[in-house]
Amino acid sequence: MYLDQIGDDTLRITQAVALLQEKIRSAGLRLKESTDFSLFEDTIRATEDRYLMEDFSGKFFDLHGTSAFWIGAWDKSGEPVSVQAAKIEDLRDRSLGQYWQQQQRRIFVDPSQDAELGDEHAHDAFFIRGRIVYHGNLWLRRQERGKGLAEALTQLGFLISLLKWSPDYLYGLMAARNAMKGFGIRVGYRRFAPRGTHWVKSPEHVRPDDWLVYSTRNDLITLARTIAAEGPE
Rank of each mutant, 00 (worst) to 15 (best):
L52M: 06
I221V: 15
L173F: 11
F192R: 09
L63P: 02
L140S: 04
M53T: 06
D49S: 05
A150W: 09
Q21V: 14
A176V: 03
R186H: 13
P232E: 04
A224H: 07
R217L: 15
A68I: 01
M180H: 06
L159P: 15
A228S: 12
D49Y: 07
K76R: 11
R131I: 05
Y214W: 15
V200I: 12
R12D: 11
V17N: 08
L163F: 11
L96D: 04
L140P: 03
A179P: 06
K76S: 13
L11R: 07
I6F: 14
D49E: 05
T226C: 01
P203C: 03
S202V: 07
R225L: 14
D90K: 03
A176P: 02
G148Q: 10
M53W: 08
D119Q: 14
F158I: 10
Q84L: 12
D42K: 09
R105C: 01
P208R: 02
A18I: 06
L163N: 07
I128P: 07
N137V: 03
A73W: 09
G146M: 07
L220G: 02
A125G: 14
Q155H: 08
Y169T: 12
P208G: 01
G182D: 12
T47R: 08
T222Y: 00
G157D: 07
K32F: 02
T35I: 12
G78P: 01
D114M: 08
R50G: 05
E22M: 10
G157F: 05
W70A: 00
W211F: 04
W199C: 00
H205N: 12
L223E: 01
D168T: 09
L117T: 06
S67C: 03
I185N: 06
I88L: 01
A86Q: 01
D42G: 02
R45Q: 14
N178I: 03
R94K: 12
L170G: 10
E204S: 02
I24H: 00
G231H: 06
A27P: 10
K32I: 03
L156D: 09
H121I: 13
F69N: 03
S57Y: 09
L91H: 05
G58T: 04
Y189F: 15
T197G: 00
E144H: 12
K32N: 02
L39E: 04
G130A: 08
R94N: 09
T222K: 00
I128M: 15
V83M: 12
Q84P: 03
I160D: 13
D114A: 11
I221M: 02
G28R: 15
Q102P: 04
H205Q: 13
G72A: 13
R195A: 01
W199D: 02
Q155L: 10
P80N: 03
D114K: 12
R92G: 05
Y169V: 15
H205M: 13
K164Q: 14
K23T: 00
K87E: 00
Q84V: 04
I227E: 00
D55Y: 08
W165I: 10
H64K: 11
Q98D: 09
